[in-house]
């Protein structure tokens, strides 16, 4: 009896200790995987939120397309200085522009637009089909590479935004694109270097609607 009491007290004390400070936790593998997935960066969700809450409200800040086109016509090498946005170090730069134009050509590769009242030569080409590159992510300066610990996340944002252009904007553009019609557009462009031919300027659209005549 003398030996039993301390043993029972010990077991009770150990039980209370384990209850208060459990040495391990049992969690289902499914719950752990779900928690890990929740913590992972979801580029598609980010892009959707960014598109509606940040990008579209910023379209008023885009440069006037006519001013950019005039500068291209007058002195293409000075476009960077006046309108370009550079990310990091390199010879390329981005443009963020908006304007109205007349559709002067439509084919499977793209839609040609001119801001001039006459003539059939396109000043801007909005390419149809797959969207590649970083112009939508980088042209506005609203997304900074330093915010992301991993370059893969930053790159995934580009792919997700390009996918939104393909899904949300290009079908709408194709519907309204008829030679002679007028459209309003906001878009982004990447210029490889100062030697690149900017006539016409290739633009990735983020917003299109019927324009003023």
């Amino acid at each position: 009896m003398k030996k039993t009491v301390p043993a029972i007290v010990g077991v009770v004390a150990l039980t209370v200790l384990c209850w208060a400070f459990p040495p391990f936790h049992v969690r289902s593998l499914k719950a752990v995987r779900e928690a890990q997935a929740d913590q992972q960066f979801n580029a598609a969700n980010f892009a959707e939120k960014f598109w509606t809450e940040t990008l579209l409200p910023a379209t008023d800040d885009a440069d006037d397309a006519v001013a950019v086109l005039d500068r291209i016509a007058a002195d293409p090498k000075s476009v960077r200085e006046h309108f370009g946005r550079t990310v990091g170090v390199g010879s390329s730069y981005y443009l963020f522009l908006r304007g109205d134009g007349r559709v002067v050509s439509v084919d499977e590769n793209g839609i040609g637009i001119s801001s001039r009242p006459e003539g059939d030569e396109p000043q801007i080409i909005i390419e149809l089909g797959f969207v590649f590159g970083n112009s939508v992510r980088d042209a506005t300066g609203l997304i900074k590479p330093s915010t992301y610990p991993n370059a893969q996340e930053f790159n995934d944002i580009s792919a997700a935004l390009n996918s939104m252009v393909e899904t949300n904007v290009l079908p709408q553009l194709q519907q309204m694109a008829k030679v002679g019609s007028h459209i309003h557009f906001v878009g982004c462009a990447e210029v490889g270097d100062e030697d690149m031919d900017l006539k016409p300027l290739k633009v990735v659209p983020i917003e299109v609607k019927e324009g003023k005549r």
Partner: peptide, 10 residues
Amino acid sequence: FAQKIPVKVE
């Protein structure tokens, strides 16, 4: 210093 400075690949 900016934390990440991308350098363009051509």
